[in-house]
């Protein structure tokens, strides 16, 4: 397992590097481990509250564990009227979890997101930022199979 200190430390001299460090942590773990936030506070020499404040401000950052694959469903208006709610139901049913939860095997987390900029083909979901477009409930199985 990679060392938090090493990952975060690489950004110490980068101006505004805290957010870059958090991105790097998420590339490694998919989430920001709680201890890594405290480590970041030390390395950047800022109060812990500030390190947490930054980590929790941004919806793409998550302090604490989540699944290996983060499925985000766009709920902005264009996706909403195109049937995002049906896609949500299909995903919840297929994975046996509710929005915001992670499957017991730690594989999938379901999250809402706002527009991901692929609105030419609504509704849209992303899995670890890779977009899947023009979704209908019957397409969900095949997509999830890629990740199982």
């Amino acid at each position: 397992m990679a060392d938090y200190k090493e990952i975060v430390g690489a950004y110490k001299e980068v101006p505004g590097g805290l957010i870059e460090a958090y991105h790097a942590l998420q590339r490694e773990f998919n989430y920001i481990p709680e201890e890594a936030v405290e480590e970041a506070a030390q390395i950047f020499d800022i109060p812990k509250a500030k390190a947490y404040g930054v980590a929790t401000f941004y919806s793409y950052f998550k302090v604490g564990k989540r699944g290996k694959y983060i499925i985000r469903i766009c709920e902005s208006a264009p996706c909403h009227i195109a049937g995002a709610a049906q896609v949500v139901s299909a995903l919840e049913k297929e994975l046996g979890i509710k929005m915001g939860e992670t499957t017991a095997d730690g594989l999938f987390t379901l999250e809402f997101t706002e527009c991901v900029g692929q609105c030419q083909a609504t509704p849209v979901i992303t899995i670890n930022s890779k977009p899947y477009e023009d979704l209908t409930p019957d397409k969900i199985n095949a997509i999830l199979a890629e990740y199982k």
Partner: peptide, 8 residues
């Protein structure tokens, strides 16, 4: 390039 993190 700097990357945002999902805040409108």
């Amino acid at each position: 390039v700097r990357m945002g993190a999902g805040a409108y």
